[in-house]
């Protein structure tokens, strides 16, 4: 499955939710789709699932436009943050309905997962807790066997144990039935090692798209005496800088280049930390 995004923009009431976003992703792969609140993640995922029309540009899957294209959309399972099920239906009915819409629906897996997440199939969606609805969404996502499976914040209301079950399932499924998983989440530290590729959105724009492998050399933290650090990062783009007692930490885009200098140390930046730095950078820009 190949997703091709070309110059996609989305306007909401004259405001840009997405600005000229372009990229290509190809599966099977587990992809982390990150960014802080309001960065445009959900808007993009809605576009990808054909739920809303783009203002400009197009999204193609295997060369075909996704909007109003049931033949393509049949291969996509989109588990949104909420509103995935009909309130008046029971869990069993929801799962039965899914059978009609996902051609590769795995009934056996669905039943197994019902037990794993301890759901009662006779319960109505209306009466479920947040965590239970999330679990039902997770079951739908995995049992759909859809070539492109999108989870947007899939575990609201789930505890650590249940989230762990989700990660285990994700790896299991990726080994047994590889597909393109797109996972958008706030709990980056927990999930960061699951990603093979990372996309980060910021203020409606694609900030970066890297494989986990490229990641370590792409963004680094340079630490040391302030003057030494300044000298080492002279011609690099800085994301974040912090000085404490003459010691400086500078997070920079190394973009694969080796950073050299006297008395400095280089450290990897975790995804979680990067997002913190990015939001600090954004705030500074707003203050200016």
């Amino acid at each position: 499955m190949k997703i091709d995004v070309r110059n996609v923009s989305k306007l909401y009431k004259q405001k840009h939710a997405l600005k000229n976003v372009s990229f290509t992703i190809e599966g099977p792969k587990i992809i982390g789709f990150l960014g802080h609140n309001g960065a445009g993640k959900t808007t993009f995922l809605n576009l990808l699932a054909g739920l809303i029309p783009a203002t400009e540009g197009h999204i193609r899957i295997n060369g075909e436009n996704v909007f109003n294209a049931p033949a393509i959309l049949r291969n996509i399972c989109f588990v949104a943050e909420s509103g995935n099920f009909q309130e008046d239906m029971t869990i069993a009915q929801c799962l039965k309905a899914n059978r009609f819409f996902y051609p590769k629906w795995d009934e056996q897996l669905a039943n197994e997962l019902l037990q794993v997440f301890a759901l009662n199939p006779k319960d109505k969606v209306r009466n479920l807790s947040k965590g239970m609805v999330s679990a039902l969404g997770i079951i739908t996502g995995f049992a759909s066997h859809a070539a492109i499976t999108i989870f947007d914040e899939p575990y609201i209301g789930l505890d650590v144990a249940a989230r762990n079950t989700f990660y285990d399932l994700l790896i299991d499924q990726q080994i047994e039935h590889p597909r393109l998983f797109l996972l958008s989440t706030h709990l980056i530290d927990e999930a960061s090692e699951l990603f093979e590729e990372i996309l980060i959105l910021q203020e409606g724009e694609l900030l970066l798209q890297k494989t986990a492998e490229q990641w370590d050399q792409y963004i680094v933290a340079v630490k040391g005496n302030a003057q030494d650090v300044e000298r080492a990062i002279l011609d690099l783009e800085v994301i974040y800088k912090h000085i404490f007692m003459h010691d400086m930490t500078a997070v920079v885009y190394a973009k694969g280049r080796a950073i050299e200098g006297e008395n400095i140390t280089l450290e990897n930046v975790s995804l979680q930390d990067l997002l913190v730095y990015l939001s600090k950078q954004q705030k500074e820009r707003l203050v200016k």
Binding site: L51, N68, A69, P70, L73, F78, N84, F85, N98, F101
Partner: peptide, 9 residues
């Protein structure tokens, strides 16, 4: 919204 998510046009 429900049916669009399920992939109907």
């Amino acid at each position: 919204p429900y049916f669009l998510k399920l992939g109907l046009s």
